[in-house]
Design a protein around this nucleic acid. Structure first.
Lengths: 86, 86
DNA sequence: CGGTATCCGTGCGGATACTG
DNA sequence: CAGTATCCGCACGGATACCG
């Protein structure tokens, strides 16, 4: 949400994602104008991804999803004890 | 988010959803404790769905997603003119 | 009314190999 | 490093039929 990240960095931060899926989703996010792709001509090649200005309008949505996740991270545990927190 | 709804009412409000998909998703939401299923024994049968107390913790998330959608409902239009609103 | 059971086609994603 | 190309299995979802 704040920094730019390289392809390989994203690979590491998204456990078990395949190269194909990561590339495919990044390409779609780019096509939808949500993510900006910047190519630095060099050897080895360096490509950086970041949220576009438009993509940053999604930050509040992502934040509320993330907040919810942090408060309810039972990872598929027993549903019968599931309830509101704080 | 606020009212209870019957199966057929949900069918009408979700365009093109198939019976199979609606039933399948409702069953999963029920299993995850997000939706409450209430059966009224009568003829014809009457089943009502509503958000559980736990499910209501998702309201802020749904709201922010909905808000974003209302402000950016270009329905897949030209990406090149896509930008932040207000 | 509110589903489930069964069949079936297809498209999604994993694995692998290759490349500028 | 940052991908694309190709192949392929399978599971997801549509269509249809049936039911308490």
């Amino acid at each position: 949400m704040d920094s730019t990240m390289r392809f390989s960095a994203l690979e590491k931060r998204i456990p078990d994602v395949t190269q194909k899926m990561l590339a495919q989703h990044l390409r779609e996010l780019e096509n939808q104008g949500i993510v900006t792709r910047t190519i630095h001509p060099s050897v080895p090649p360096k490509v950086e991804y970041s949220l576009s200005e438009y993509g940053r309008t999604l930050v509040p949505v992502l934040q509320s999803m993330c907040d919810w996740g942090r408060n309810h991270n039972r990872l598929g545990g027993d549903m019968s004890v599931r309830q509101m927190q704080s």
